[in-house]
Amino acid sequence: MASWIPVAGLAFVLIVLAVKAWPAVVVNGFGFIKGSQWLPGNTYGSVVHTHGVAHPSGSSYGAWPLIAGTLETSLIAVVIALPISLGTAFALTERMPGWLSRPLGFLVEILAGLPSVVIGLWGVLEVGPFLAHHVYPLVADHVPNVGPFRYFKGPVGYGEGLLTSGLILGLMIVPIIASTTRDLFLQVPALPKEGAEALGLTDAEVARRVTIPWVRSGIIGATVLGLGRALGETMAVAMISGSVLGKVSPTIYGTMTTIAATIVSQLDSAATDGTGFAIATLAEAGLILAAIALAVNLCARYIVSRSGRLAAPVGRG
């Protein structure tokens, strides 16, 4: 019985969100996903009706920059965090004596509990400016100006934007992925690892060929957990992204925003819309975020079920 409580809770949240978002869904239509403009309209002017829904004249919303920003920052975060996390877990389980790995592992878990607003503050005051002054120019000046590399060209700004957001998000999800992966690595039985060592494989090859594949589905699960956190992370991104509505950043350094950051930064002004249409639009954006998170989870389940073909049987070996 108790197992239905989370399901009922989730259904309740989604239904309320959908009901709140419905007027916006009707008016914005499919253009909401493709469009880039974010115009609340004249909230003190005349009210117009579209498909029977009241909204301020001149209001026009498109969420594509938010969706793109959400996906881009999360992708950067996972690309950064996954290798660091696997390396951390590997170092903690294979390379360090117990007296060192236990406190360090504890430290990693503590990092997961750092409030995101604190990390955001650190990111916007220290990390961003440092990267913009000392690191980004090196990259931007030295990548070739061809094809996909152009994405890494252009003005690097002042440290607020897509890349900084992605990097900080990556740092935030490292503890989640690393601590889960460490626990997984500890479960891998010694016998297959010894077999690989006895065959003359290097430690790195043992990790790549035996240890990581042995717990592959668990690592995918941990990564999705981290990805979910990155997709939904609000405060840190709201502080670091530059909070620029209305366009997708043309380079990896540009200012931008995400769905979650927009919802929190626009909520105040949306409340001034007497028709409630701006709030409905934010609810619609929230619905899209929930859909993305759900889709990511379903994809992960599919990958896990596929990778299970060659995976090791539980409790054996």
Binding site: L191, P192, E194, G195, R209, V210, A311, G317
Partner: peptide, 9 residues
């Protein structure tokens, strides 16, 4: 080894 230890591949 004592027990078979195939790799997960």
């Amino acid at each position: 080894f004592q027990r078979p230890n195939p790799f997960p591949m």
